[in-house]
Amino acid sequence: MSDAPLLSVRELTVRFGRTLAVDRASFELWPGEVLAIVGESGSGKTSLLRAVHGDLPADGGCVQYRLDDGALVALDELPEPMRRQLARTQWGFVHQNPRDGLRMAISAGGNVGERLMAAGARHWGRIRAEATEWLRRVEIDPARIDDPPRTYSGGMQQRLQIARVLVTRPRLVLMDEPTGGLDVSVQARLLDLIRRLVSDLGLSAVIVTHDLAVARLLADRMLVMQGGRIVEAGLTDQVLDDPQHPYSQLLVSSVLQA
């Protein structure tokens, strides 16, 4: 267990015009830890995730990340080339809609290989071998390596997106509703896959979800957001089994028991 957090978010604030989408959110993420952010639509959870990733400009606060050499840097102070370099090697972002995270006209192999090539890989055979291996790991038949993702099912596309992100062995993965929009049976398979990969690779992950079962299955800790604020934070099973905040209690009691 490392005592230094990998990611440190301080008082992060995002405004859309006069609306406060994220209101002074603070949290830390340690190496190997999975953190879930839950809340209903419009609670600001996706905005928080995108602001952490640098896709949304923050109107206050900061996001700090610990580099390989142990130095903690504020992301908005890093020069853009370095931030991009981080984003395509040490970080990964899994979009809810795989179309946002994949190149639909490029083959599965090209999609997985892109991050390797962006990081400087120039040996075709090795890129191909790595892509094949990753398709296998996300349970896609390697025989389909040359097919474009538009010929894939929704669940396969999402698994391909995960392979594309994980191929560079990132330290931090941010996922926005990774199982949203999928059939329940497909969801279960994907969740199991994410769970296994996260633990095998020792990833740190932040997962935004409205599904409390997803949080329970994947996350060590969770944050509950309401109206742009983090209203409760704690151990996942403690927040789910003994929620303290009125909104958390409402959220937990609103889940249908199957």
Binding site: M1, W30, A188, D192, R216, L217, D220, R221, L235, Q238
Partner: peptide, 26 residues
């Protein structure tokens, strides 16, 4: 802290509950 509790659960305190919380596909 939650992280300390996770560490304690990993190596020191075990819990055998009445019901198994099944994880799909495992």
């Amino acid at each position: 802290s939650p992280r300390e509790i996770v560490a304690v659960r990993r190596e020191t305190v075990g819990y055998v509950s009445q019901f198994l919380r099944v994880i799909p596909r495992v």
